[in-house]
Design a protein around this nucleic acid. Structure first.
Length: 791
DNA sequence: CGGCCCCGCGTTTTT
DNA sequence: CGCGGGGCCG
């Protein structure tokens, strides 16, 4: 591709951003303005026009998926060969690689383990217990979050007491933090935040090493810059302050990750850090209709902290945003399902053209149920990651122990799994002993006599057997590939036996998960072998990959079109012709956890902005007046953000009933949010039957029955009326999230054609019993099964 | 040491 | 309501 051809693919502002390579630049890319396009073309431009070698370009992204997709797109422009050597990946994966090769300089071994959030929390919890603190006062999760936040701001334990995170009610967090850091070191482990902090410290204390990487990376690009935290910003500065050859791309209006340390000031003040930085704005939105863009603009304009910009669209006018009030979460789901059917008829589109976005994962439930009833195929993203499932974590803990026997959290997990008679008492003795001598658990187990470990003969023998088993696998680390060794560990450790001899035969999902995991391991080894040729793929390589991989990254070779259900956070970077933003009530969106500070409220508002701007053609908001949560009925007013949207751009269903819709009252009138909530709950049975001998004849109230509607009507003083008379859908034969019904014919990737004879389970545990023509009867865990519905 | 029962708790989430 | 952790008992 010539320079002219390359640049002709871009609009004027994109072209300017791409071709400016002389110094630092900040590209503010409005929603749908072709941000990824600019990044890919810019890298192509650097390669072709500026003559940079691919290994001299560093591109940092936030997800593996983003990195992979961008690499593919660049390969299409400049060819596989050159794209392959680009230094492209997430902050964490790139820095993990650097840290492994420079481990010695900071006193680590290069086989260090990466602790995930669960490991961090568990370690914090152990420390709190050992310090004999009250777990009510020092909640492990919250302390772990504080430590994480401190690290994101590069505040080391010594400085913690003086920082703003420190609060007088919990003075001992400082000590917990100190111990935590020590323990990570003893375990030769880094948590996710360490991958940043340690990289920063490495560059800060070892100028020679910093120079080496400055020399290596001639140009640095950062995607989603609005989501970087302080540590990331500092490292970026370390790498680029001499050359100033850096380009960051982002949208301050889409900064929604402050809860994990992202700091919107990074992008707002970029030109404070790089004084000569040029600013480019991409303001033309190619994704959405004009009315959607304008409605989103009207919302985000209510925020004070932002870089002024004027996002516009030249696409068709389109229709207004729709607001559809519902009585209950169940009716909300019914409305959405009806609308999906309606729009499919009108627009002749597929299930995969729809997304349902919500604030919290728990909200998926009502939609799941309704879509199953209606036979609408769907896929839920997020929730529990595959790698967070117990059986998978156990296997990984074995792998981790074999690669790095000092890994305390992994050791604790597997030392008595499967049960081998090493109970809590023994574990605690080993831990105490290790702490006393300042060594790892494995050191104590290896030399119990030397460390004067006080256990009975029998226990000592059990520990020794365990140690020998680990050591035996360790000798194979260099000679066997990840798959062979991993498979051996699963078989020989007794994990396999434990899972397959499980007393409840219904518990088949664990087996399938394990099989999926083993298959994934095999795939990994094979694909890596092709890439790197020759060298065999070690277990450690697999662990490195897995530690930084998530569910969303996994291959989604969708055979079947399905409606996507996910949180707004998970939807960032995606787009859909039709988007439903559901649950727009106070105490849901904005989340009740945000205390109302302006910063937090503005972030919640940006979150809604992100949700709306995912939509290409239709954007439909829903709001339920009553919602079951934790078994009780909640009744919240509509979200305050609804009032932030320009009323001219919002069509409320049942407009005629305006007077009765509290959120349509003009400003100045008494604030509807301050009105006492209508209490429908009082008409319902007390959800927790206490010992109090009260006559409690109330049968459970079906939230969709006529009775319930009447209750709501009375409770609200007649204010709430049905938005649409929606009959509960007639009993539909058992059907499935994947569009399956009993009797469906499917074509399975491995087993061929078969007939579904039974469906059971919900959510991730949905299983189908299928009679295959040529492969007999099989049970499939639908989350992982690869198949197509043919009838 | 292991299983069972009861109590408490419950934003967003990537790496 | 549903899950996970802690405590108690065999």
């Amino acid at each position: 591709m010539t320079k002219e051809e390359l640049l002709s693919q871009l609009n004027e502002s994109q072209r300017e951003a791409v071709s400016y390579c002389d110094g630092a630049s900040l590209v503010i890319a409005g929603a749908g303005s072709g941000k990824t396009r600019v990044l890919t073309y810019k890298i192509a431009y650097l390669l072709q026009e500026m003559g940079l070698a691919p290994w001299n370009i560093l591109a940092l992204t936030f997800t593996n998926k983003a990195a992979r997709e961008m690499k593919e797109r660049i390969a299409r422009i400049v060819g596989e060969e050159r794209a392959r050597y680009l230094q492209m990946g997430t902050f964490h994966s790139i820095f993990a690689r650097i840290l492994r090769s420079e481990a010695a300089a900071i006193g680590y071994q290069s086989n260090f383990t990466i602790y995930d959030q669960a490991d961090s929390r568990s370690l914090v919890k152990n420390i709190i217990k050992e310090m004999q603190l009250d777990e009510k006062q020092y909640k492990p999760a919250s302390v772990a979050d504080q430590i994480s936040m401190a690290k994101n701001h590069v505040i080391l334990p010594e400085a913690f007491a003086g920082c703003s995170l420190y609060d007088n009610k919990h003075p001992l967090v400082t000590d917990i933090y100190k111990r935590y850091v020590e323990r990570c070191r003893q375990a030769n482990a880094m948590d996710f935040d360490d991958l940043l902090v340690q990289t920063f410290l490495l560059f800060e204390h070892h100028e020679d090493i910093r120079r080496k990487y400055v020399e290596k990376f001639h140009f640095v690009l950062v995607d989603e810059y609005q989501d970087t935290n302080y540590a990331q910003q500092r490292i970026l500065l370390q790498l680029t302050r001499e050359r100033q050859r850096v380009c960051v791309v982002g949208d301050d209006a889409q900064s929604i990750y402050s809860f994990r340390g992202a700091n919107i000031d990074n992008i707002l003040n970029f030109r404070g850090a790089y004084t000569n930085a040029r600013l480019f704005k991409l303001e033309q939105n190619y994704r959405s209709t004009q009315l959607i863009v304008e409605a989103a603009n009207s919302l985000i304009r209510k925020n004070e902290r932002q870089i002024p910009k004027d996002v516009y669209s030249h696409n068709e006018h389109g229709e207004k945003l729709q607001l559809k009030p519902a009585y209950s979460d169940r009716e909300e789901a019914i409305i959405v399902c009806k609308d999906i059917r309606r729009i499919m008829r009108e627009d002749h589109c597929e299930y995969s053209d729809f997304a349902i976005l919500y604030r919290t994962n728990a909200q998926s439930r009502s939609f799941e149920e309704q879509m199953r009833k209606d036979g609408i195929p769907y896929r839920i993203y997020g929730g529990l990651s595959f790698y967070q499932r117990k059986e998978i974590k156990d296997v990984i803990a074995y792998f981790r122990t074999v690669c790095n026997p000092d890994d305390e959290e992994a050791m604790r997990r597997i030392i008595n799994y499967p049960t081998r008679g090493i109970g809590n008492t023994t574990v605690q003795k080993v831990v105490d002993c290790a702490m006393q001598h300042g060594v790892s658990l494995f050191s104590v187990i290896s030399m119990p006599v030397f460390y004067q470990l006080d256990v009975t003969k029998g226990t000592a023998a059990k520990l020794e057997t365990f140690r020998q088993q680990i050591e035996a696998w360790r000798t194979k680390l260099d000679t066997e590939d990840a798959y062979t060794l991993g498979h051996a560990i699963i078989m020989e450790s007794g994990i396999s036996k434990d899972i397959y001899s499980s007393r409840n035969p219904e518990d088949l999902s664990r087996q399938e998960n394990l099989e999926e995991f083993v298959a994934g391991m095999q795939d990994f080894v094979e694909s890596r072998r092709e890439e790197d040729q020759g060298d065999h793929v070690q277990l450690g390589d697999f662990l490195q990959e897995v530690a930084l991989l998530t569910d969303l990254d996994s291959d989604s070779d969708e055979e079947q079109a399905r409606v996507s259900l996910m949180t707004v956070h998970a939807a960032k970077g995606l787009e859909f012709p039709t988007v439903f933003v559901v649950g727009l009530e106070e105490n849901i969106f904005p989340s009740p956890m945000c205390t109302g500070s302006m910063r937090q409220l503005e972030e919640e508002r940006r979150l809604l902005y992100v949700a709306i701007t995912r939509a290409e053609k239709h954007c439909i908001l829903t709001c339920a007046q009553n919602r079951f949560r934790y078994g009780t009925l909640e009744n919240d007013p509509p979200s305050r953000f609804i009032r932030d949207i320009d009323p001219k751009l919002l069509h409320v269903e049942g407009e005629s009933a305006e007077a009765e819709r509290p959120w349509r009252r003009s400003a100045g009138q008494q604030d509807w949010m301050q009105n006492p909530r209508p209490v429908a709950t009082q008409f319902l049975a007390d959800p927790k039957p206490r010992a109090v001998a009260k006559p409690k004849p109330e049968p459970p109230v079906d939230p969709f029955s006529q009775d319930f509607k009447r209750l709501l009507h009375t409770a609200s003083g007649g204010r709430y009326k049905p938005v649409a008379s929606v009959a509960p859908s007639a009993a539909v034969s058992a059907s499935h999230s994947c569009g399956l019904r009993e009797g469906s014919m499917i074509e399975h990737q491995r087993f061929g054609i078969g007939k579904v004879v039974r469906l059971e389970g919900t959510g991730d545990n949905e299983k189908a019993t299928v009679e295959f023509r040529n492969a007999g009867t099989k049970q499939l865990l639908l989350k992982f099964a690869k198949y197509k519905v043919i009838d």
